[in-house]
């Protein structure tokens, strides 16, 4: 695994995740390339979402969830005893499978939901514009900033959620199948956005769509559940290499469509 290198912004070591007594992910060690998109692919139920949710400590809000191993952010274990999960989550933003803007806030307030506090009106507007521009949404909503986000299309709502995450100025952006609920046109817009956002952020994106992984990512990690249903990392490599010359037999089977 050529991509596992020291000095990356985000890396896991021997990471395992559990729901109660049920283990969902086992022994994942991977380093995510800085300012690039890493795609997590694999069949349904192989633990992609669970792994992703361990990376910003949102996994632990499930009442019986547990994590073993470590996740290093800038060399520091985010599961270390003195780490504040809230602070971690502000450094590692997340976009979910279904768009989830705050329904009672306006588009503007959604965009700056976690921008620095104490901004005046002008500062807020500027922060919102910056966030919305980086989510490629500004032109579409600049005339209706005060309206409800629920009036936007699904793709626009998802970009609003990206803007909201970006406004917190995180270092890493986690995306869990961000286009799973969108139509092809909206999907293309988001994919393009991911390619531009990775100039600024380290992105880890789950997808079960291999074409998407090939289009947007520079590194792809393939996960698979073993016979007991525990998800494991099979291999991670440059996307081009993984799709043409995978080193593991199971990866080859998966990308050639023999299962999953």
């Amino acid at each position: 695994m050529s991509t596992v290198a020291a000095g990356e912004l985000l890396a896991t070591q021997e990471l395992s995740a559990y729901y109660g007594s049920r283990q969902a992910v086992a022994d994942v060690t991977i380093a995510f390339r800085r300012k690039a998109v890493t795609a997590l692919i694999g069949p349904s139920g192989c633990g992609k979402t669970t792994l992703l949710r361990c990376l910003n400590r949102i996994h632990e809000i499930n009442f019986d969830a547990r994590v073993q191993g470590s996740v290093l952010l800038d060399g520091q274990d985010i599961y270390g005893g003195d780490m504040d999960p809230m602070a971690i989550r502000r450094r590692i933003g997340m976009v979910f499978q279904r768009p989830n803007p705050f329904p009672t806030l306006s588009i503007l307030d959604n965009a700056i939901a976690c921008a620095p506090k104490g901004l005046n009106r002008r500062g807020k507007l500027e922060a919102a514009e910056r966030a919305l521009r980086s989510a490629a949404l500004w032109d579409e909503v600049k005339d209706k900033l005060k309206t409800s986000p629920l009036r936007l299309s699904g793709g626009q709502q998802q970009r609003l959620c990206i803007a909201r995450a970006v406004a917190a100025q995180p270092e890493v952006l986690l995306m869990d199948e961000p286009t799973a609920s969108l139509d092809p046109i909206a999907t293309a817009v988001i994919e393009e956005l991911m390619s531009s956002l990775c100039k600024e952020f380290t992105i880890v994106a789950v997808t079960h769509n291999m074409q998407q992984a090939a289009r947007v990512s520079s590194v792809t990690a393939f996960m698979l559940a073993d016979e007991t249903g525990i998800g494991r990392l099979i291999e991670a490599d440059d996307t081009g290499k993984l799709f043409t010359k995978p080193s593991d037999r199971r990866t080859e089977d998966y990308i050639s469509g023999r299962f999953g």
Binding site: I61, M86, R89, F96, R98, N100
Partner: peptide, 15 residues
């Protein structure tokens, strides 16, 4: 209230 919303807020670093 959908879980999604709570997670969105928690993921932004809210308590």
């Amino acid at each position: 209230i959908p879980r999604d919303l709570r997670e969105a807020s928690m993921a932004l670093g809210s308590t």
